[in-house]
Lab assay of single mutants.
Amino acid sequence: MALNTPQITPTKKITVRAIGEELPRGDYQRCPQCDMLFSLPEINSHQSAYCPRCQAKIRDGRDWSLTRLAAMAFTMLLLMPFAWGEPLLHIWLLGIRIDANVMQGIWQMTKQGDAITGSMVFFCVIGAPLILVTSIAYLWFGNRLGMNLRPVLLMLERLKEWVMLDIYLVGIGVASIKVQDYAHIQAGVGLFSFVALVILTTVTLSHLNVEELWERFYPQRPATRRDEKLRVCLGCHFTGYPDQRGRCPRCHIPLRLRRRHSLQKCWAALLASIVLLLPANLLPISIIYLNGGRQEDTILSGIMSLASSNIAVAGIVFIASILVPFTKVIVMFTLLLSIHFKCQQGLRTRILLLRMVTWIGRWSMLDLFVISLTMSLINRDQILAFTMGPAAFYFGAAVILTILAVEWLDSRLLWDAHESGNARFDD
């Protein structure tokens, strides 16, 4: 018995066209964080690309023209004298008006014999932002004059995390709450300039795509075929072959399989920071003279006294001054041990922890910024005066060393310790 099946006739004509040209192939790229070699397709503007294995951002879609970056830099340069030299806060102490600005706080630190601690604050609040705007201006002028731009481009990517104007702005709020127990506070004209400078700096850093600047100024022929001998440069993120001198053909720094002496430098910085954190938390970090009496505060006791007036601000200072430094030390110690013992479990967790400490590390400088600003506000000789204690130097040095330890660690070593050939990683 035959089955009668109805015929289905399409209502619209289906047209099949042959592909007349070869589909576009992607360029081969190595991930600078996990060293995976993959094919990167062509990316349009405002599109980002991520590593298929570790999800690290390979290409950032946010990109401004150099002219727009230069305009932002010149605007920031105009704001800087007002943000640093004009009063941020006014207080009335014992019937006398006192003005506080950024430069005055750094000068008070240096004047009291601790120039190293003052230079830490100076670099993060004044030096690094000033280098940022002058570097962008150098790129703008240098591109037109045919100057060598490689050193500036190499420095810009590392400079971003040292620009800490946003953290200093939080420190202004913390210092205001600490001082309000002794005097009446009012915002100064410099505060508005400083807030504007923070906003412009944040926007500029978020749109400063150094890798795209490398592509514009020093374009290189990408690798179009897969080759395990391809290496990625950690300076400019170019994937290719080393030249005859073993250097990256684009930025001219040595092109090595792994960062040289990464573990040794990381261990040295980490152990030194552990040693410095002990006096930083045991010795007094601030000293207040009130009517001839002397009151010393460690980091913890200062947080407890701050909690009596504002528990939320005390929580912020606790996280930045105690929780973050010790968390960074514990995480980095764990990561280094996992590399030495070739741990194969929990790779995803370790990668996330490394990215976390990379982002939060700079916030530990908050305590030094609060001390710097408070020193310029309260300084009335023996009637009422505020000065920093010996722990300030140890704390600042420990924070900087932990930042350097994270920067010096080559994250690809975590993958080397893991089993080879993993296309995915999980716990």
Rank of each mutant, 00 (worst) to 15 (best):
K111Y: 09
I172G: 05
F123V: 02
S308N: 12
Q55N: 09
R53L: 08
Q112Y: 09
M388Q: 10
D243P: 06
P249S: 11
M155V: 04
G20L: 05
E296M: 15
T298E: 15
L413F: 11
N379S: 02
A175T: 14
S308F: 08
V16A: 08
H90E: 02
I19M: 09
G127Q: 03
P81M: 04
L366S: 15
P254Y: 05
G302I: 03
Q345P: 11
P41V: 07
C54L: 00
D243R: 12
L377N: 01
L282V: 12
F395Q: 01
C233I: 00
L37I: 08
L335S: 07
N422A: 15
Q55R: 07
I126Q: 08
R158I: 13
A83I: 03
P254T: 12
A417Q: 08
G105M: 01
V189M: 12
I116L: 12
V189R: 12
V163Y: 13
N379L: 02
Y289C: 03
S48G: 10
G85Q: 09
L283C: 10
P279T: 15
M388P: 06
L337G: 12
T11D: 10
F194G: 09
S321V: 02
L3T: 09
E212Y: 15
R17D: 15
D35Y: 05
L401I: 12
Q7R: 06
S119P: 05
L130K: 06
L208F: 09
L270G: 13
G95C: 04
L290W: 02
P87F: 09
V210R: 15
L154T: 07
R216N: 13
R259E: 15
L263G: 11
T11S: 07
D416R: 10
H237Y: 14
A269H: 03
I14V: 07
T239H: 08
Q382I: 09
T11L: 14
P129D: 11
L377T: 09
P6K: 08
L277D: 09
R68N: 02
F369G: 04
L159C: 03
L323I: 10
M103C: 05
R221H: 13
T224M: 13
E407C: 09
C236I: 00
N379C: 04
H340K: 10
N44I: 06
I400Y: 08
A280R: 00
I339T: 12
A175P: 01
D367N: 00
L94K: 00
A83Y: 03
I285V: 11
L149R: 07
W359C: 13
T75G: 07
F369I: 05
G190M: 01
G26T: 07
V102L: 08
P52S: 05
S48D: 15
D35C: 03
W162R: 02
E21G: 11
H237P: 04
F122M: 12
W363E: 00
T374F: 01
R226I: 15
I136A: 06
Q33F: 10
Q344C: 10
A183R: 00
L23G: 09
P325G: 07
F369L: 04
S135D: 05
R59N: 09
E21Y: 06
G315K: 07
F122E: 12
V370S: 01
C251K: 00
L165I: 13
M103E: 09
L88V: 03
R348A: 13
G396I: 02
L404T: 06
L66F: 05
E212N: 15
C343Y: 15
T15R: 09
F318M: 09
L139G: 04
W162G: 01
I126G: 10
L373N: 03
L282C: 14
P129N: 09
T11W: 06
L413N: 11
M332H: 06
P390V: 08
D99G: 05
R256Q: 04
I131Q: 02
V121K: 04
P10S: 06
M1K: 01
H340G: 11
K13I: 06
I96S: 03
G293E: 04
G188M: 10
T402Y: 03
E212S: 15
A417V: 11
S305K: 09
L200P: 06
H340L: 10
N291V: 15
I253E: 15
D27R: 10
A70G: 12
T374P: 01
S321P: 00
V232M: 14
L270V: 14
D27I: 06
T327E: 03
A280C: 12
G396K: 00
V163C: 10
K265H: 09
F141P: 06
V195Y: 05
L145G: 02
D367E: 01
R226G: 15
R250G: 12
S39N: 08
E211V: 09
I288V: 11
F122N: 03
Y168H: 06
L271V: 14
I131F: 01
A307H: 13
Q47S: 04
V329M: 08
K265S: 07
V102R: 00
I177H: 06
I371K: 00
T202P: 04
L200C: 15
M76I: 05
I172P: 01
I330F: 15
L377F: 11
A423K: 15
F326Q: 09
L373W: 02
A405D: 02
Q108E: 06
G293P: 05
L352G: 12
I106Y: 03
L213S: 14
S48Q: 12
P279K: 10
W107P: 08
